[in-house]
Nucleic acid binder design. Structure first.
Lengths: 250, 250
DNA sequence: GTTTTGTAAATTGTCAACAATATTGTCCAA
DNA sequence: TTGGACAATATTGTTGACAATTTACAAAAC
């Protein structure tokens, strides 16, 4: 048997033409080809850091590791290359993409724009329940930042952002946003944020929720936008600091 | 011989590690694999409409047409699938993606956000020369709209937008923006804009340039954003009209 | 000691054959 | 005629083999 479908195939009343792309079952099937599985598997390895930026993906070794031939593997890496997670160099091989600082900063800009759109859209979608939940997130993070529980802060922070993005009910926005965040994982200097900036960052979170409550679309868009832009600035500052530090150490 | 390189290979002083992704020569080489050529070729066929949304890409016929085997062709289609230009259905084949209206509207939203970012960034980059050039575009379009030279309007309109995006000197923005625009080409109802809205649209263009001249980032971002959102609204309206028309015709 | 050069090994690029699945068309029965 | 089983065909999925290229390494030249 060639494929192991994750879900049972549903009866499809498709005519010969292209199936309507909105069809949910087929989206599931689509991810179930061997190539699709490999693509997801490799993406996980990359995003979890098992495959590190700059590392080479050896076709033979990987195909042996997964127990498949090189064909589907190459198709999977081509897909990852198209999505910017790996680099393809003819006759040299495939390498996990290593995103330089300049590009990371650019990604922050686009991410800010998309996140700002989320803020703008959410004004029309926000409910009282959502607001209390959001303020709950912010209060929790305030407490964690005050007590310096840095390890606990990040998961809550992530959940907060994911809840916001998910609440937009805007598939394209969600997809694009996640792609941008994924790419930022491939930047070496991602984990340079200093603990002191946590309280600062959370003040921005509160302003974001306040702006949602205010019902002012422009204010909300700008609050969301600036939050990401300031995160960018914080990374930039941390970067400069380590540069100076390493310069002083020489 | 396997490859026909577009440019001669330049001497590369690379160590064994992954080549720095910024290196320009390698970017050129990267596009020169057989798969890369096929990918570009297929993309052209799709974006020019030679391959229409919903149409099937037969592997055998295409491989014969291009004189290559199915392997590289499949890799190329996988890359296109990852970029959302085609749909992959296991055991059924590859189809040119047909973007439904709902998704097209969503794409307009994200495009508005990215275009708004362009407006925000350009405030800091705009020069007097650019402003006169931009006003020139707007004046030209005003004249063409007044004289109802609709065929001539669109190329100028396109050039105007491309000039703006290109002037940002922001690679990530440019890439993302172009991807979004490409995707919109795959929506059946793209060419429904009514001639009457041209003058309206160009009024927004003038406001965009005015806002750039004003030096007000927020105003500029909002002007750029709203221009795309209004284009979306115009498409929406045109869509509803044809719906009513076909409904009335029944 | 360093650089260059040439050969062997490893790796990537491509192809063609085969297996599995989907599609088409035909025959038969109701 | 219509509808369903069934065979024939077409198409996709996967694999392994071979060609071309790069890389690694050792020997020779400076």
């Amino acid at each position: 048997m060639y494929f192991v479908y994750n879900l049972v195939m549903v009866e499809s009343n498709l005519d010969k033409a292209a199936p309507e792309s909105g069809s949910e079952e087929l989206q599931v099937l689509r991810t179930s080809s061997l190539t699709g599985v490999l693509e997801r598997e490799l993406q996980n390895l990359i995003l979890t850091g098992n495959l590190k930026p700059g590392q080479k993906l050896n076709e033979i070794k990987l195909s042996e590791r997964f127990g498949v031939s090189r064909g589907p593997l190459r198709e999977a890496t081509r897909a990852l290359a198209a999505r910017g997670l790996v680099d393809f160099f003819p006759n040299r091989g495939v390498f996990v993409r290593s995103i330089p600082f300049d590009e990371a900063l650019e990604i922050y800009d686009v991410r800010a724009a998309v996140f700002g759109l989320a803020g703008r859209l959410l004004v029309d979608l926000v409910t009282d329940d959502m607001l209390t939940k959001l303020y709950g997130f912010v209060d929790t993070m305030d407490a964690l930042a005050r007590d310096k529980h840095f390890e606990s802060y990040y998961p809550v922070n992530l959940e907060f952002h994911q809840f916001l993005i998910g609440s937009t009910r805007h598939k394209t926005l969600q997809t694009e946003y996640n792609h941008l965040v994924n790419k930022l994982h491939l930047c070496r200097a991602k984990a340079l944020v200093q603990p002191g900036s946590l309280a600062l960052s959370n003040r921005e979170h509160r302003e974001m929720v306040d702006s949602l409550a205010s019902g002012d679309k422009l204010r909300s868009q700008e609050a969301f936008f600036r939050h990401v832009e300031r995160a960018k600035r914080r990374l930039q500052a941390a970067l400069k600091e380590t540069e100076n530090a390493s310069f002083g150490a020489e």
